[in-house]
Structure formats: C-alpha cells, structure tokens
C-alpha cells in the first residue's frame, strides 16, 4: 500500500465522523430543549464530570466487574462446553435445558440474583455479568468441540498425545474459532449486563453515574456518561478484534485457502 492510498483510506475513515460531529455541533448550538444540550456544553462538562476521582470511583469498578464476570464466563463456559461437547450422551441430555437457559434474556437474571445477594455490592453484579455471558460461550464451545475433525482426533490418538496436549492442541485450539464467535456475542451482552446491574442499585459504576445524573437533571453530565459508555463499547470491540485477529490468523488463512481452491 503506497502513501497516497493510505491517505485516501484515512480520509474515507474520518470524513463522515467529522461531518457528523460538525453537524451535531451546529444543530445543537442554538438548541433550547433541555434534553439536547449543545455539543459544546457537553464537551465542557467532560473535565469537570470525569475527574481522576470519578474515574477511580465509577469507571474502574465497572470495568473491573466486567473483566471478572467475563473472565469467569470464559473459563466456566469453555470448561463446561468442552466436557459437554466431548460426550454425546451428556450433550443429548443437556442440550434442551441449555437452549432454554440461553433463550432467557439475560437481564431478567438481575432481579433473580438480587433475591440472593441484593442489588448493591460486587458479587451480584459480577454474577449477573458472568451468567449473561456464559450461555453463548458455552453453547458455541459445545458446537466447536462437537465439530472437531475426526481425522485430526485419530491423528492425535495414533501419535499417543498425552491428555493435556490433546486438550490444548486438539480440543481447545480446534474449537477456538467457535469459542471466539461465542466470546464476541458474550462481550456485547457483558457490556449490557454491566450497565443494567448498576442501574438498579445505582451505588457506583458508569451505569449508576449516568442514571444519577439523569435523576438530578444534570443533562450535560448524563450525556458525557452516554458518550463515555459508547467509547468504552467501541474500544472493547476493537481490543477483542485485535486479539482475535492475532489468535486466529491460522483460521483466516485456512478459510481463504479453502475458498480459493
């Protein structure tokens, strides 16, 4: 790629966002509706709203809970999904029950969890995130393990791979493209659960912060929270993609070579 085509790509990428921002700026500039403050006002509210203290008090707990819940869901989902996927009978036994659990919209789990531990505190929030993320990861892992290539399994048997090698090199890596699909779905559910779990108790976290701002009619502050959440959602998906891009480079190559032939 030469420099001029790179410049062209960059221009294409930033042209529309700039146009939209400029439009927002001017249209909102003389707006009198209290719910739509001017973009200038929102920008000016940013530094006073999101001070270092507030970042530590609200953004960090949110992200930490998301990381913990998501991580738990990944570990449990992949482990359980592998066990279920490797055994035909277990799979047949559990599949309808798992499909039912997946069909339940995750947000309804929040009040159920609150029955046990209440709305405030970390445990309930982490549990809500983890449970919301679990099913897509688990069910996709089951699919991935079920779809392992028989020839590859036979190969690892004839070369007498040890159990840990078999699990890592064959089962885990072989099902990783499907696991990634589940993990991607789970990430957006995780962000939803992160916000929702904070809306109920409204004690701390990003979700709590924007709902508090709304309740006290601090509209520009509320808008900064909404924008911040958007940016976080975007950044998380970028991070996910970079990790996936690196970890599954072989899969893209394989798919491309299959399509080419």
């Amino acid at each position: 790629m030469n420099l001029s085509s790179l410049a062209r790509q960059l221009l294409l990428a930033i042209a529309l966002p700039i146009v939209l921002l400029v439009l927002w700026w001017f249209i909102s500039a003389n707006n009198t509706s209290p719910f739509w403050p001017s973009l200038e006002t929102i920008f000016k509210a940013f530094p006073t709203t999101w001070t270092a203290d507030r970042i530590m008090a609200d953004i960090m707990p949110s992200l930490a809970r998301l990381a913990l819940g998501y991580g738990l869901a990944l570990i449990i989902g992949v482990a359980l999904g592998t066990l279920i996927g490797l055994n035909r009978t277990v799979r047949a036994l559990l599949e309808p029950a798992l499909e039912f659990l997946r069909a339940i919209p995750p947000p309804v789990l929040v009040p159920i969890i609150a029955l046990f531990v209440g709305y405030s505190g970390w445990t309930g929030k982490i549990a809500a995130i983890a449970l919301g993320c679990l099913w897509p990861i688990l069910l996709n892992t089951v699919e991935g393990v079920r779809g392992l290539d028989e020839v590859l399994v036979d190969t690892s048997r004839t070369y007498r791979f040890r159990k840990p090698t078999y699990f890592y090199q064959v089962v885990l890596r072989g099902s990783s493209p499907q696991v990634a699909t589940g993990a991607r779905q789970a990430l957006s559910l995780g962000v939803i659960m992160m916000v929702i779990s904070e809306l109920f108790a409204a004690d701390n976290g990003l979700g709590a912060a924007i709902v508090q701002a709304q309740r006290s009619f601090a509209i520009p502050q509320m808008w900064t929270g909404i924008i911040l959440l958007g940016v976080i959602g975007f950044l998380l998906s970028v991070i996910f993609r970079v990790v996936e891009h690196r970890a599954l480079a072989w899969y893209r190559g394989l798919r491309q070579s299959e399509r080419g032939s």
């Binding site: 020839v151 590859l152 036979d154 190969t155 004839t158 070369y159 990783s176 072989w250 394989l254």
Partner: peptide, 19 residues
C-alpha cells in the same frame, strides 16, 4: 494405538494441525 506405529491418512488436509 501402540507406540510403535504411525499412520498417514488419505485426508492430508485434515490430518495436519492448521494452527
């Protein structure tokens, strides 16, 4: 599968680890 045996399968594309 015994230790002293190696097998080459017909499905070469599927017997190699793509990763």
């Amino acid at each position: 599968p015994p230790p002293g045996m190696a097998v080459v399968f017909q499905e070469y594309g599927r017997s190699l680890f793509p990763w």
